[in-house]
Every structure is written in structure tokens, then in C-alpha cells.
Amino acid sequence: MTESEPAPDIAMWGASGSGKTAFLAALSIALNKAETNWKLVGENQASGAELIKLRNRLLDDRTFPDSTESLTYYNWLLIGPPEYHRQWWRPWRTQPGRAPRIRLDFLDPRGGLYAESQASVDKEALVSSLVRSRGLIYMFDPDRESRVGDAFKHLDSALNEVAAQMLAGNEYADGKLPHYIAVCITKYDDPRVLTLADRWGLTEPDLNDEMRIPRVAEDRAREFFHRLCRHGRSHNAEMIVDLIETYFHKDRVKFFVTSSVGMYIDERHRRFDPDDFLNVIDDPHRGLMIRGPVRPINVMEPVIWLGGMLSSRSMRSGR
């Protein structure tokens, strides 16, 4: 079946439980909330059904998606608002133009697949999809890193395999992988993560946000990532930033501090409360429960960034 699959444009990467599927689930919610007029649709029946299922999971069931058990494909289309053109002879009227479209062919692997040493059909498919893709979303879970500390191992082994396939030839003379990579620090809503950002003085309230949710500024996300890596359980984690920047062009790496579900905001006060922002609480029956409204943070941004980068690049290279 693999042969006939179109090449995934954006692939996801991250350890088990790092929130890959939750991120996808939050994506369409984020697009709705942002009032950007972007929308996400399934390119085929299975992907469409899955999109609705994932969204319902967060919004109606208020729980997180089950852990991905086998390599899953999502073929989605991100459709933007039509661009309006003004005609010089009738400048007071606008004409709707073509809506921009970004293909999102996500490949969602079970987290453990990256770390598996032995070759398997799934793993080959995964690595080949990474090779074919030009956009990567790398999910870094600070909570997992502080408890398990295997991010470096995952990244290193997968990068090695991808690099071995791509850099062996002469196609990439500069010795770097051609991907754009959005490094997403996940679970920003977790007190253990937010507290660290706060303690390290990396947060600042967004004055445009009436809820005053503290944000890590775009230009400080890399620093946050770096410090989280140093804070992690494994000494190797410190090398992750180096590893990324060794394999990828530095200007094609962007860091995002993300949260799929966002912070809990008490409806009565509608303000961020540093004492009570926990939005993911333990559910008495099963796993975790989303407590309040889902307000994704920086979920749409990496995708739109990658989409923008890939489409401008494809225009240049004629890909």
C-alpha cells in the first residue's frame, strides 16, 4: 500500500505520550478559535472521519486521544480565506480570489516506533516518510523528559537513519537535511512546565490577551527549550539542541511553546489565575480529563509556519 501513498508533506516526530495526536486534534479547534477563517478538512473519508473523531474527543468527551498503536495517516487540507483582489478600475469593490491550500499529510506513528532498534515494516515506512517529507513537527515533552529522559535517544536514532538515506548521495551538498522543523515544547499548560518557565523568567503576559495568559515570547522559546533539556533527567538531553542544529539548517528550525488544550480560565473572572490554571485533571474513571474550554496555544502556528515555508519553497524550487 505504501507505494501508492502520496509523500507526506509534514511528518510528526516525538516520543510516546508526547502529545502528537492531541496536537492534531487541537489543530482544527485552534483554527476555529483563531477566527482566521482557515479550516481543516479531510482529504479522504478515513481522514475526514478521523478528524471529526479527534475533535469530538477533545470537545465532547473532554479526554485525550488514545495512544496511537500503529502508524496512522491523516491526509488533511488546510484551506485559508480567499484572498480578495481589488481591480484598479473598480477599487471600491473586491473580488474573491482563490483560497490558499496547504496539504497536511500527517504521519502519526506510535511513539515507541522511533526507538525500536530492530527493523520493521512500520519503521521502514516511517523513515521513508520522513525522508520524503520536507516539514517536520518535532514534539518535545518536558514532563516525559524529566521522568524518562529518552528524547535524545529517540531523536538521535531516527535522525541517523534519515540522514543515512538522504545525505549519502550528493543531493544535499551542504550536509544538512532539507527539512523545515518546528520544534514544539508540549504541555505548556502543565504546572510543572509553566512553573519552570515562570521561575526562569521566561514568561510574560500577553497584553493583547484579555485573559493575560503568560506566554513565552517567540524569541525566547529556543532558550526555554534549551533550559528544559538541561533540566531533563538524562545528561544527553543537553545535546538535543546541538543535534537539531547539526542536522538541520539553523534558519529552518523554529521553536514553539505549545499546549493542545491551553490553560483553565475561571469563567467568572475570565482572567488567568496563577493559583488555578490546571486544565488537565485526573478523571475518576479513565485517564485524564479536560476541565475547561480547550484553548490551544501555538498549535496552529507551527503548521501555518511550515505550510508557508513549504509552499514558498515549492514555488521557488518548482516542487
Binding site: E43, N44, A46, S70, A125
Partner: peptide
């Protein structure tokens, strides 16, 4: 799950896989 890549030949599912 039809979005998942699987090797099951005969199954029940919500929708059929894309390919």
C-alpha cells in the same frame, strides 16, 4: 481504525481506508 496503517484483511470499521 482506517486511518491507521494495518495489515488486517477483513474487519469492521467506521469508514474504509483511503486506499
Amino acid at each position: 481504525n482506517s486511518a491507521s496503517r494495518h495489515r488486517i484483511r477483513l474487519s469492521f470499521a467506521e469508514v474504509a481506508p483511503a486506499h
